[in-house]
Structure formats: C-alpha cells, structure tokens
Design a protein around this nucleic acid. Structure first.
Length: 292
DNA sequence: CCGACCGCCTGCCTGC
DNA sequence: TGCAGGCAGGCGGTCG
C-alpha cells in the first residue's frame, strides 16, 4: 500500500488513539519482519507513554517518554488497525473483511483499552527503537531527501537536485535521497499532471540562465498537488489497504494513469492512450502524446 | 556515477 | 479444479 499519502493517513488515524496513552502490553508474535525486531523490544516499550506521532517520508515516528523513538515502516503490505471493544463489534457488524490474523505480527495494548494491531502479509515492513538524538544521523534517515509536503519543495529545489543527472525522471523521483516519500503510483501521477515524460533525463529540468525551468516548477507544483489531494482522500486503497478505522481511501478513483494501461488519456483534447513500460524493473504508466 | 537486476515474502490474478 | 507464472504500493544490495 503505502506511499507518503497512505502513511500520512495511517498517522492521522493512529494519532488520536495513541497520543497520551501508555503502552501497557506488547505482543510481538515473531522474531522479525524484514529485519529482526530490536532486542528486548517488548520490555523496552512496555510502560512507555506516547507523546507524539510524526512522519518522515514513509516512516512513522512515535515519540516516547524516555527520549526514544519507535520507528515504523510499512513496507509494501503493512497496515495498522485500531481496535477497542466498540469498534471491533462495529467493524464486524458492518461486514468489513477481517484481515488474516496469521499476519497480525505486533499488538500494542494501550492504557485506554485500545489495541493497535500491525498486520503485514509480505513482512517487508520493520520496526526500530532509537534514541531521539541518534535519529538524524541514523542510516535510515541520514540520506533522506526533501519532504515533498513541507515548504521545502519548489521548482528551484527540484532543478538543483536534478542538475547534471542523466537518469530518467521516473528513477530520479523514486530516489528517496532526492525527494523522500514518493513511490511508483504518485511518481506516475505527478509526471502525467506535469506533462513530462518519465523517460526524459532529470537533468533537462535543471536551471537555465540561473532560473528553474518551467518544467521543474510545474513538476514541483504537481508533486505537491497530487500528494495533497491523495491525503485529503484518505490515500489510495489497492487490494485490501484500509485506513486504521477500516474505511477505504478513495484516491485510486482519481488515478489518471496508474494501472490504466490502454485507457484513453484523461488530458482534454489529448487523444492519447495510456501505455505501460518497465523502468528499473517497475511498471511506469504514462501517455506518450501529452507527456514530453 | 548509472542502470539493470535480484532478493526479501505472500497473495491474487491470469491462462493453460 | 489445480498449478505455474507473472505481478504488486519498498528498499537495499550486487554487478557490469
């Protein structure tokens, strides 16, 4: 599921249940996900109060009351759900499909009585427990690029990041050390909105005569636009992705190119057809007519 | 530096 | 109906 908008949706769903609550029990049901869980994971978390829940790129960051930070990454298939007695009954009664409990790998029990369940069939997600002061220099975070939903990303920044790069725009936008948080879907969508070909060299958007190109400015704007729209829609629900309360995000209905091979291009008057190609081993969807 | 490819895992869909 | 193959939202590593 999770690119930046889905992770942000999860963060907003977990926040009211987690903030100010204390972890009174932690059930870690296997030794590892993508990586091993930290040593004494359960002991180190039990008794901690959750002070804040933040996000950096696709990472969730729970600030704890002992100056440690619980770092959580959802990988490809990770999700959280919030359960309390009432909500569990409500979900059951409205027929929301229950996830396969065999993939419920971590269960947090909170002092409020709520349970936070982490489910991850493919187990590409992971959790880490770090001291807050070591976060910035940690290998996971040290090399992360600009946050696309903050105020940092604009045409000038994009132009600078792309200067001299011969790599295709698609690969450059997926590179988390340049911009942190985009994934396959939103890269395809942003490039279509900006009318730029995923195959074009990133460096072609670098500054000309000391000014960012129109393409760089438009692309920066479209990246922010598509991410903001997706967050507002509760993210995209592919397969079984749901928000933490079981509700579906609906941004997938607004995809213009992703998973739309052979559909007519939605750009007015374009007349093109969406194509699928492979770039660095992953599907790229785009219109060869209006994306140049 | 760059890109292509592989592995990590499971589930789902397609075609035979 | 079953089975093989391809594909999937991420990311880190190797190799040429």
């Amino acid at each position: 599921m999770p690119e930046l908008p889905e992770v942000e949706t999860v963060r907003r769903g977990l926040e009211p249940a987690m903030i100010g609550a204390r972890i009174v029990g932690l059930d870690q049901r296997r030794p590892d996900l993508r990586f091993p869980f930290p040593d004494r994971f359960s002991e180190r978390l039990t008794g901690r109060e959750i002070l804040a829940l933040g996000r950096r790129a696709k990472y969730l960051l729970a600030d704890l009351d002992d100056s440690s930070v619980l770092v959580m990454h959802l990988g490809m298939s990770g999700s959280f759900r919030v359960e309390d007695m009432g909500a569990a009954k409500a979900l059951a009664s409205c027929g929301a499909p229950s996830k396969n409990a065999a993939h419920d790998h971590v269960v947090f029990t909170l002092s409020t009585g709520a349970r936070i369940v982490y489910n991850d069939p493919r187990r590409f997600g992971f959790m880490q427990l770090l001291a807050r002061h070591e976060l910035a220099d940690h290998p996971l975070f040290r090399a992360l690029g600009v946050e696309p939903l903050g105020n940092e990303l604009d045409g000038a920044v994009l132009a600078r990041l792309f200067t001299g790069k011969t790599t295709p725009l698609k690969a450059a936008l997926l590179d988390q050390s340049l911009i942190a948080g985009l994934g396959n879907i939103y890269v395809c969508e942003a490039l279509h909105r900006a009318g730029l070909s995923p195959r074009r060299a990133a460096g072609s958007l670098a500054c000309k005569d000391g000014r960012p190109t129109q393409g760089a400015r438009l692309l920066a704007k479209m990246i922010r636009e598509v991410l903001e729209e997706a967050v507002a829609a509760g993210g995209s629900s592919l397969r079984d992705h749901r928000q933490t309360n079981g509700a579906l995000g609906y941004f997938q209905h607004n995809f213009r190119v992703y998973d739309r091979e052979l559909s007519p291009c939605p750009t007015p008057e374009c007349g093109g057809v969406i194509r699928r190609i492979t770039q660095s081993g992953r599907s790229t969807y785009f219109c060869g007519v209006c994306q140049r």
